[in-house]
Design a protein around this nucleic acid. Structure first.
Lengths: 254, 254
DNA sequence: AACATGCGTTCCAATTCACTGAACGAGAGT
DNA sequence: ACTCTCGTTCAGTGAATTGGAACGCATGTT
């Protein structure tokens, strides 16, 4: 995990630095991007025009923006996961029935990545969209996954990423995390009580294979005012667990 | 359009050549990829390990595959399009009601790109998924878009991409295309009668702004046996046009 | 058990190619 | 007409990619 390449190709790294900055700044011109990255504008121009030629960047007038071609690679990577196809309709159903926001997350390189999101009728607007990468320890989805990862993987991930505090309530010590994960293993589901975003509560459960590997996690999240007492402590967890059970069955027989 | 960069960054091009080959081959090892690309394996290894370090490529054992991180950029690019949010629920509804496969396409760099796909109950399985790029002239969606692009854009696109024949029925001459586009402008919708895939028919209509720009197109597609006579010539076109009208209204007032 | 094969990885020398600051041209604003 | 700003071009220089050869580690074979 996170191996340092012995002979890294610096240009490749720079390429992605530029694309990521372009995403960060929205669409912008050469000079703005160059100033932001503290690179000469001729350099940035060379990269951007190459990226445009390769159709990974779109140029309109004098402003550049991230091209839709990345979706070809991203959606491909997602569709390769057997779990996506199987879990998607169930997550959609969960959103429909709870009327809240339902999510599907997987882990890669120690990050949590949302690979599907379904909006129920009352779904909250959040800052996460498909493709967003978050720290595992700060979400119910991530904790569901961490709870069933081999212990040494968890160690490596925490060592590499730390436990950055997103809100006052974020789990931020190793001990606290261990307790949380133990609780997840006991109850079968995880909760997020404003640990990543103020005002947002969340219930999540891991998707596991019959031999105990985690493939990802499913969640339903909503505003604190609707997520309370029995609904938050019983009804919703059960609903999420049901969803996960159906997915796990379908995974086994496919 | 398709400007050649004057001082292209070759390493950037190579980087994407490698990632695209990795997508092509599915997951594979260094040697296999190197043989495929006729590059020295040490070179390929340097790129792959750099890409893994940047988390754009996933390594499991000794096999590499395209990483989900591309979804971050791809989904971002998609979400930037105001049309995606607006059209998505309507395309979903179209799929639900027709029980067929419904699609949303936009144009970029002269290609058609599927940015959403909704499966109705009887939806056919096709080779296109979200992110797939296709030639505009060979699909109903693409023809809907071409029909409302400025003439010089159409010329440039045809010059750059040609009119490759996908099936026996693909439009493959400039004259034929012009006739088709004129028909699309008259009727307001386009059809695809096994022009891209044998056995598949499709009805599509363009999404336009009040000042006549095309933002994309919506389609419903299904097997020839279900797509016939009045249904294919009347009912479905009307249903697709309805969908597009709703989307256009929502675009105007936002 | 010794050997052969194929793989990913490392290393370093050769040379290609990325880098960059300065200059140019186009367009907008004064 | 002038100025300012931005994107683009250019060419010399030196850093970084390149790639053949060698290494270590599996796996499978004799």
């Amino acid at each position: 995990m996170a191996n340092r390449a012995k002979n890294p190709v610096k240009t490749t790294t720079t390429t992605f630095t530029i694309v990521e900055a372009l995403k960060e700044l929205g669409s912008c011109g050469v000079t703005e991007l160059a100033n932001h990255l503290k690179l000469p504008k001729s350099t940035v121009h060379n990269y951007l025009s190459t990226l445009e030629q390769e159709e990974y960047v779109k140029k309109e007038g004098n402003t550049y923006s991230v091209g839709i071609r990345f979706l070809e690679l991203g959606a491909y990577a997602r569709d390769c996961m057997q779990i996506y196809d199987i879990a998607k309709p169930e997550v959609d159903r969960l959103a429909d029935e709870t009327r809240e926001l339902a999510n599907l997350m997987i882990e890669e390189h120690g990050h949590g990545v949302y690979i599907h999101q379904a909006k129920g009728e009352q779904a909250v607007q959040v800052d996460s969209y498909v493709g967003t990468r978050v720290d595992l320890h700060a979400t119910a989805l991530g904790k569901s996954i961490l709870a069933h990862l081999p212990e040494d993987r968890v160690d490596t991930i925490v060592d590499n990423h730390g436990l950055p505090q997103r809100t006052k309530r974020t789990v931020s010590t190793r001990e606290e995390l261990e307790e949380e994960l133990e609780l997840v293993r006991e109850r079968g589901y995880a909760t997020d009580d404003e640990e990543r975003l103020k005002g947002l509560r969340c219930v999540a459960a891991p998707i596991q294979t019959s031999d105990g590997r985690v493939l990802g996690a499913v969640s339903a999240s909503g505003p604190v005012n609707r997520m309370q007492e029995e609904y938050f402590e019983d009804e919703l967890p059960n609903r999420v667990l049901e969803t996960v059970n159906v997915i796990e069955l379908n995974v086994t027989y496919s």
